[in-house]
Design a protein around this nucleic acid. Structure first.
Lengths: 343, 343
DNA sequence: TTAAAAAGTTTACGCCCGTAAAATTAAATC
DNA sequence: GATTTAATTTTACGGGCGTAAACTTTTTAA
């Protein structure tokens, strides 16, 4: 590594023995220059440690290489995991991911979008909060920036959607639970923020009716994203007051189930399939921690990898080809039953 | 909101009835202009929806308002939580946080630092991976960018450190466990990546010896950041082969403890304080999930809020006053015993 | 009221790079 | 070796804003 400090592309072009526009061309697309030229530049890069000033580059390019990724709540390992997958894919595609969490707060969500707008991203992958989201302002954002929604589908918002097939997945779980024991009671928050929760409830009701069973829904109180806490408190009350109509409980998601498992343990109720068990509990999502609950949690897995891959793919194609008027692709991946010890 | 689109600061100055330098001054520091001027600009901002181009601004400012935040593993709710705290504080101080995760990978860690360097941050808050980190390259980074380390202290790296007092915290826990039942066995990974793990082990040994007890350490195999899995497998083996010398186990961290609890459950061992219990298990960190394990986990809490607050404070002062040669402040916050059901 | 101080305006230059057009050089084709 | 084609260089401009100097206006203090 040479000692002289390279201040800008002009100087770097000089030590490479080339002109600045050629070097600039190389940085935009290494394949756009002759092989021999490319080698000279790359040799110079080894020797001199220069990188184009990202601010000057982005100021002048029509489109930056930034891709915004907004998730509703990063402290939830589910979103952390899917964000990790997305990040890796975005980088591999030569873009630069900017990861933002809304921390469960609609204002922060809009703040994140505002903040993204100011960096003029090529596109955005957005998993919205849901019910509490400021629909109008998200819509305004989507009109100025190519946006693919994932995880949570807000009707007709954004240029496409990739997510989990809640209907199919819930159906599979309800069928399994019904044929392997008592039919399930559905356990959920009274005012779920996420639209997936509503789809899951509806699918539960439909499937139960199709099977000739009576749907039973237990709605518990609680606001915010502290789902384990909410499931725990709701579970304690439900157990103490005997609110569960059958011995089988299907939770709207794994985090509620984790709370409910804690409540069952606290109440001295053994959870599982065996004859010595008082309760069966199932979740939904295959949360990273569901393999380490006591007992391990039976659940329906979302296909994290496929959802991440497809949303990045869809966004890149949107950026590349531009918006197709009238079109808004929606892709759902099927859930897979994961049988563990809890149900 | 007016319809005419403001393209740049020139046009915005025009509609505000001011000159561009004055407007520029306002955006750098609203208090640097007369109150009446400030009001005019703010009124215009309401009416016209203009924001300075962030790339042009950063290209010209000596120092950007960016602050990098690098954590080793964002899918760990512990780091997600501390990152959330830091983010909020950084924003409140008028800076812009850039959150990056190393995903447990030393190369990604260096990649993150490289990526940060290219955005010329005012400063960086870095929680390094630890043992596997590329020390030399981190050192090189720290020389060119004001950097405060947190969580994990790599000897003499960076311009300061804020973290958890592992020695004191482990001592408190060992004392509690010893006086309330059988003395604890220390349960940890054979090759812990994080230097905190070493401090905890040493503190365990010291405290045990001070109390006149024999330290017993159980090292389990496993690589990577999948601590729950490692704790689970190690726990299963240890239980099956009767490797625990006493009935009390102090885990190096909560995530290992979560795995061990799952192993105990799987093995039919009841964990807790009562007479019907075969095992006592304690953790370290007060992981967000430790309130929902079965049984709930006794642990030592890290002061998340204080660590976040102090590291941001330290970094801002470093940015403000510049590096004091020879000085490298180290601040440790004490751990607080959290008694729950598991021990 | 007046002088001094503070704030704002004008003018001008620089930051670092993208990009377009025209001129030149090098590589590929026959 | 001459011609075509592709790549590179030269020249030139623009993007949006920071910032400095000199000048003018407004505010504050005497």
């Amino acid at each position: 590594m040479n000692t002289r400090k390279i201040r800008n592309m002009e100087e770097f072009a000089e030590v490479s023995g080339l002109s600045r526009p050629t070097v600039s061309k190389y940085f935009n697309d290494p394949d756009s220059v002759r092989a021999s030229t490319r080698e000279r530049i790359e040799a110079a890069l080894e020797a001199w440690d220069y990188r184009p000033n990202i601010y000057a580059v982005n100021q002048n390019r029509r489109l930056t290489k930034n891709i915004g990724v907004v998730v509703p709540y990063l402290a939830d390992p589910f979103f952390a995991e899917i964000a990790r997958n997305i990040e890796t894919l975005v980088i591999a595609s030569g873009f630069r991911p900017i990861l933002l969490s809304s921390h469960g707060d609609p204002e922060q969500e809009i703040g994140n979008l505002d903040s993204l707008r100011s960096i003029k991203p090529a596109g955005v992958l957005l998993a919205p909060l849901g019910r509490t989201s400021d629909r109008a302002r998200i819509e305004a954002f989507c009109e100025s920036v190519p946006t693919i929604h994932f995880d949570s589908n807000i009707r007709s918002l954004g240029d496409g959607f990739v997510g989990h097939n809640n209907i199919q997945a819930t159906g599979v779980m309800v069928e399994y639970l019904s044929r392997s024991g008592e039919p399930p009671v559905f356990f959920e928050m009274r005012n779920p923020t996420n639209p997936n929760a509503n789809r899951r409830r509806n699918a539960y009701v439909e499937t139960m009716e199709r099977l000739g069973l009576t749907p039973e829904i237990l709605k518990i109180d609680g606001e915010g994203w502290n789902f384990e806490e909410i499931g725990f408190r709701g579970g304690l009350t439900a157990i103490a007051e005997g609110q569960f109509v059958t011995n089988t409980i299907l939770c709207s998601n794994d985090r509620l189930a984790i709370g409910l498992l804690a409540a069952a343990y606290e109440s001295g109720l053994r959870v599982g399939l065996g004859s010595g068990c008082a309760l069966r509990v199932a979740g939904h999502d295959d949360h990273p921690f569901s393999r380490f609950t006591c007992p391990t949690l039976t659940t329906v897995a979302q296909d994290y990898a496929a959802i991440a891959e497809r949303s990045v793919e869809m966004l890149l194609s949107l950026i590349d080809k531009g918006k197709q008027p009238g079109e808004r692709p929606e892709i759902l991946f099927e859930g897979k039953l994961v049988l563990r010890a809890s149900a």
